[in-house]
């Protein structure tokens, strides 16, 4: 049985959604931690949920990334633990230097909330092993700062090391397939050891038949199985 932690920060608003999805998939209750906690027993998977931690003050995820609980999350990462950061959770992971690059304001200057089609890459990374190379997933995004950016040297490095996990797929000819202007259509990346995944789309919002799709559940299930 995987030990799964969900961390909540002031302003997290997708923590209950991901908890519900995990409960549905695993049949067990994940462990919840508040940002002020400074100890966390060993976990197999730590999830940083979506939301607007600390009101997006200073920069999205910047203050959350320096919360007391993050020392435990960093230690978990250094031990080779699995981490999933969704939307604001992805922003927190980049601010905590657990993932390279950063998430900037959407190119169109608007909050974007709609389904996107993702294409899976480098599925040999540990956290992606349950997905197939090139697998398409329809999952919604909901963000104002999802425009992934990395300087040329960093971008080359993450490509060379196979760290791009998901791109927005333009295969169905939609000219607006990339919702935010992310460089090279990047929607999600993994750490060098392939165990930390950050992505802008919300898998927990396509995790129940009532959501109109189960692609998110598929993604979450494979992450949980990889970490188990």
């Amino acid at each position: 049985m995987a030990r799964i932690a969900v961390i909540s920060f002031p302003g997290s608003n997708c923590d209950r959604d991901i908890i519900t999805a995990i409960r549905d998939i695993t049949g067990t209750e994940p462990n919840q931690f508040w940002h002020k906690e400074s100890t966390m027993p060993r976990q197999d998977l730590v999830i940083l949920p979506g939301g607007f931690s600390f009101g997006d003050y200073l920069r999205c995820g910047a203050i959350a990334a320096r919360s007391p609980i993050m020392d435990e999350v960093l230690e978990h990462a250094w031990r080779g633990g699995y981490i999933l950061g969704i939307c604001n959770g992805f922003q927190i992971l980049t601010e905590a230097d657990l993932l390279p690059g950063t998430l900037m304001r959407n190119r169109g200057l608007r909050f974007v909330c709609r389904d996107v089609v993702l294409e899976t890459h480098n599925s040999d990374n540990a956290i992606l092993t349950g997905l197939n190379e090139g697998q398409k997933l329809r999952i919604p995004v909901a963000h104002n700062e999802g425009n992934y950016f990395a300087d040329a040297a960093t971008l080359k490095k993450i490509k060379d090391k196979g760290q791009i996990a998901f791109t927005y797929s333009g295969a169905d000819q939609d000219p607006n397939y990339n919702p935010n202007g992310a460089i090279d259509d990047i929607a999600g990346i993994v750490s060098e050891n392939g165990r930390v995944l950050g992505l802008m789309p919300h898998p927990e919002r396509k995790a129940d038949p009532i959501h109109g799709g189960l692609d998110g559940r598929l993604l979450l299930k494979s992450v949980i199985e990889a970490a188990s």
């Binding site: 200073l58 920069r59 910047a62 203050i63 601010e95 950063t102 900037m104 950016f149 960093t154």
Partner: peptide, 9 residues
Amino acid sequence: ETLLVNTVI
């Protein structure tokens, strides 16, 4: 360097 600026951008 530790908080106020994101030196990536």
